[in-house]
Every structure is written in C-alpha cells, then in structure tokens.
Amino acid sequence: MSDLKKEAKSMHKAASGMRGVGHHTAKPLQEFRAQSHDLGALGALGSLMSATEEIREGMTTLAKLTRQLDEEWEAEAKLIGEVSDAFDLLDVLIAAAAQAKRG
C-alpha cells in the first residue's frame, strides 16, 4: 500500500470520527439547555445573589459555543474527506503513470 493510500485511509477514518461527534453530544447538549431554564437547584442562594439570570445566560452561551464547535468539526471533517479523496485519486494517477512508463 502506497504512502498516499495510507494517508487517505487515515484521513478518511479521522473525518468519519469527527462527523460522529455531534451524534454523541446532541442529547447531553439538549439536556444542558433544558436545565438552563430550570435553575431551581440554586434555591434561595441563587435568588439572594441575583445570579440566576447570569447563570442562565452563561449556560446558553456554552450551549451555543458547543453547537458552533460541532459545526466547525463537521466542516473540518468535510475538508479532510475531500483531501482524502484527492490523495486516493492522486495515488491512482501515479500508479497509472508508472504502469504507462513500464508499458
């Protein structure tokens, strides 16, 4: 197996893994968002400190950042997949050129 073929296979595997991240984080992220609307666990302490709204805003910000990170990983996975495909094609072209030289 050529080096390009090995690199392409490795990159394809990495891209597949990155695409799966969103599937693993979707449920915990949904639960986290739901909890930002129910901050009863803070009890009187949260009310006394007037921190409830700030905590809610912070949790919303974290959820948005997590979603953006998932989107970024998806875009990177797509790019890695495209590079992997290019390596596969280049490997085929190099092999064909070598075969043509041998004649």
Rank of each mutant, 00 (worst) to 15 (best):
S2Q: 00
S2A: 04
D3V: 03
D3L: 09
D3W: 08
L4S: 09
K5I: 06
K6A: 12
E7T: 07
K9G: 14
S10V: 11
S10C: 13
S10D: 15
M11W: 15
H12D: 15
H12N: 10
A14M: 11
A15W: 00
S16N: 10
G17A: 08
M18P: 05
M18R: 02
R19I: 01
R19N: 04
G20F: 10
V21S: 02
G22W: 02
H24E: 06
H24V: 15
K27C: 01
K27L: 12
P28H: 00
L29A: 11
L29E: 03
F32I: 10
A34V: 03
A34G: 13
A34L: 06
Q35G: 01
Q35A: 12
S36D: 01
S36L: 06
H37M: 07
H37A: 08
D38W: 01
D38T: 00
G40V: 01
G40W: 04
A41W: 15
L42C: 06
G43D: 08
G43T: 03
A44N: 05
A44M: 09
L45E: 04
G46F: 00
G46I: 03
S47L: 08
S47R: 13
M49A: 14
M49D: 02
M49H: 05
T52E: 06
E54T: 11
E54M: 10
I55W: 04
I55G: 01
I55C: 03
R56Y: 05
R56H: 14
R56K: 13
R56T: 05
E57C: 00
E57L: 10
M59A: 07
M59H: 02
T60S: 13
T61H: 06
L62D: 13
A63E: 11
K64P: 00
L65P: 00
T66L: 13
R67Y: 08
R67N: 09
Q68V: 01
Q68D: 12
D70Y: 01
E72V: 15
A75I: 02
A77G: 03
K78Q: 09
K78S: 08
K78V: 03
L79H: 12
L79E: 10
I80V: 12
I80E: 00
G81M: 04
E82D: 11
V83Q: 07
V83R: 13
S84W: 01
S84Q: 03
D85S: 13
A86K: 13
F87C: 11
F87V: 07
L89H: 10
L89F: 11
L90H: 12
L93D: 15
L93Q: 11
I94T: 07
I94G: 02
I94S: 02
A95V: 12
A95E: 15
A96I: 11
A97N: 15
A98C: 05
Q99C: 12
A100T: 09
K101A: 08
R102P: 02
R102L: 13
G103C: 08
